[in-house]
Amino acid sequence: MHSLTLPAMSRKRYLATLGKFLLFLAIVLTFSPLIGPTRIDLLKALAGTGAFADNVDANILFVARLPRELLAAVTGAALAVAGCVFQALLRNDLAAPITLGVASGAAFGAVLAIALGGTFSVFGFSAVTLGAFFGAVSAVSLVLGLSRARHGEMPTAFMLLAGVTVNFFFAALVMLVHYLSDFVQSYRIVRWLMGGLDITDYQTVLSICPAVFLGIGALMYFARDLNLISAGASTAMSRGVDVARVQKLSLIAASLITGAVVAVSGPIGFVGLVVPHIVRLMVGSDQRLLIPASMLFGAAFLVLCDTVARTVIAPTEIPVGVITSTLGGPFFLWLLTRQR
């Protein structure tokens, strides 16, 4: 009898692989906040003696670095998972929140909310968050509406071109809003557009967690369906996948998590493109493993990028989007040349 060992999926392999990714993330999360222009003493920071306000080490660690690190982790996780899912749905490894116009749709929504001075909030979501979310969804709807998927087959090349076009369109609208806004708003918009993780607190991080983890949970539920969709629409249908329903729901979920993190972190480029690729090389193409592994690796990746951004020309901090894009741009080009 022929023995089928690798690459069969089993609970054992699943947990062992994710365990390694979790360990990596834990190491990154532990050591990154200790690195920075100001040296901090972990023992002093954790010592419970004296008032918190007098403990400089604790202040830097818990007020300045930790919330920022957590925001980077959640943002990286969300963008990586969204990229993973867009790639499976479009059956193309160039699909990502950026190339589908989702990111700049979200940017436009958020910038509009800033410019209009929206200060209301619904269910704890700020106007900027809501703006980003609706921007993301409208960009996806626009691309989908234009491409008119027929009988489950998504016209991939068309969708990518339409996505890039929608991306430019919303970028132009962002510029227009920016141009028309006053000095204070303009400053807020610029800071936001650069992809900032620097001004944050635990409240902000917590506010996006429900949307992000609900979305990722939904996508993990569809993982096997997404495997089949990435193998072809007619094959997926013949194996009992409700293709149209899975496509719709997972697009909504992926847009939701993209919108939620872009709203607070700004449009951070290329994480959704680069991370799924690296992880696919490590764990294979099965979405059941790829989605959670990308989530963990994406979190670690953005925390590392942010650590570089904080320290590379310290004490000046570069926006993290600059780091991810300068790494991601060449990577994207390398992928393009390899595809031919």
């Binding site: 069969a8 790639q87 059956r91 369906d225 089949l228 193998a231 294979g284 099965d286």
Partner: peptide, 16 residues
């Protein structure tokens, strides 16, 4: 195939 699946993974998709 859009992604580098292994043969066994593809056959196993039949069990969906």
């Amino acid at each position: 195939m859009a992604f580098p699946f292994h043969v066994l993974e593809i056959v196993m998709m039949g069990r969906h």
